[in-house]
Design a protein around this nucleic acid. Structure first.
Lengths: 256, 256
DNA sequence: TCTGGTTTCTCATGTGGCGAGAACATCTCT
DNA sequence: AGAGATGTTCTCGCCACATGAGAAACCAGA
């Protein structure tokens, strides 16, 4: 756990400004407990590089255009290929439920496409780039189940298993046995473990070599989920198969 | 023109990765001419803070989720209020042309809303957050015309006036007299100075105190623009007035 | 097992970032 | 205008700490 002090500080300043939306030098200095002169140095540096802008008339600092450029580059790199987006959209349409596509990325699990509408909105904290709480989401569980045991324990060890609802599985060994089951069934259900009143399901998507690389998933109000397990499973598998077929023809998830 | 060396390097590494989409440590070291060991140090630091991820199996580095978060914060802070977005959308609809809304931000000029469609697409390089080439765009010119003379010359001095088409005004004194005219007319026209075959127009939007804070603009194929000057001007003014009226009731452009 | 590559570690060196305070600039009262 | 209060930049000596070279550890694929 190394850390170059200047860089540490620089990012903490940048993030302090991002969190506030807008901040004065003094506010940043106070919040981070860094001498004012040093904060000014860092702010100035960030401004010079375009990560912040200095609104002189208001004596405040805000995020600069480079931040948005980084966001665009990230999105561009990660957005799911259109064939996969279409499959996800079809799931959304067929099941009348918000649909999701997630992939492995290094040691992480990331949502790379969402398909929803006003009538069937996404689960609230979920958005493109979401990468938390794998232990409590359907797509997270199916992807955790596909990891090697030591990868998985490293993953969970690093991020913990916060309890998000009374139903969240927070015991590592309990999760382990659950994931065994998930792996053999090839489908992950999640019953109000992430958000109350919401039920989700996810199935694996495999690449040409048959290794699991992602997952396609849906979320439903628990009330609507009752009695639809079969239908949900069938449709998910149908389109997961379609994604896998697409990937078998040499495409990868990273390329748009 | 100060610069803390480590920070300089850190951002150059981050941006090198962003530019490549994906890069190995060696590639970065070679491109930036920084010793490999130092590059690893910086990469590691960036990974630790979430700005990069390390794809171990591929031995490469890519942008991390924090980059996207920054982009979101930037967007959230800057996106035009919905009343103004609606006005822009109306201009788009009424004039059958891509419409834009831009504001001052510190010493900068930034596009904060675009309204277009397949039939009437935005000018290609334009996007949310665009902040270049003010001397060659209609909204840029109307906002330059609203600056104090020394602000304006500082602005143009810092960014230069690149020639983008044969029509681009690249002579500062010529631009100055042109902007005089723009200021008195209260409308800026731009005839193929930014992109060939495209004509744009922009009018000011003022806040409660009557000071110009932004601009609403449209772009048209030059062929379609002929003979529509009157119509374009009328509609632009109508909705610019609507925006100004909204701002007069205490709202600011920075708040969504 | 070996080999070629990537990644981390070690360590002596001296650069360059640090903080305190002064100086300068800018706004806001009276 | 002048005085006072803030915000911002500059100066400068000190020494922590980032640096780069090289070695070592690690990790594939052959």
């Amino acid at each position: 756990m190394s850390s170059i002090a200047v860089i540490q500080r620089t990012f903490s300043v940048l993030e302090a400004v991002a969190a506030s939306g807008s901040a004065s030098a003094k506010e940043v200095a106070h919040r981070l407990e860094i001498p004012l002169a040093s904060v000014y140095r860092l702010l100035q540096e960030l401004v010079e590089h375009g990560y912040l802008v200095h609104l002189k008339e208001e004596r405040r600092f805000e995020l600069g255009p480079k931040c948005f450029d980084l966001g665009l580059s990230f999105r561009q790199r990660l957005v799911a290929p259109s064939a996969i987006r279409q499959a996800t959209d079809q799931v959304h349409k067929k099941l009348q439920a918000a649909a999701y596509f997630a992939v492995y990325r290094g040691s992480d699990i990331v949502l790379t496409h969402l398909s929803d509408c006003l009538a069937h909105p996404r689960l609230q904290p979920l958005r493109f780039g979401f990468h938390e709480a794998a232990h409590a989401t359907a797509f997270g569980k199916i992807l955790l189940a596909g990891m090697l045991p030591d990868q998985r324990s490293a993953y969970l060890g690093a991020r913990g298993m916060p309890m998000l609802t009374p139903n969240t599985v927070v015991d590592p060994v309990q999760l382990d046995t659950h994931l065994q089951e998930v792996a053999t069934c090839g489908i992950a259900w999640e019953h109000e473990e992430f958000l109350p009143e919401k039920t989700c399901a996810a199935v694996p998507v495999r690449n040409g070599s048959g290794v699991q690389i992602g997952s396609i998933a849906v979320s439903l109000p628990t009330s609507e989920a009752a009695g639809r397990q079969r239908q949900v499973e069938t449709v998910l598998r149908e389109y997961a198969g379609q994604c896998s077929r697409y990937l078998r023809s040499g495409h990868t998830v990273a390329v748009a």
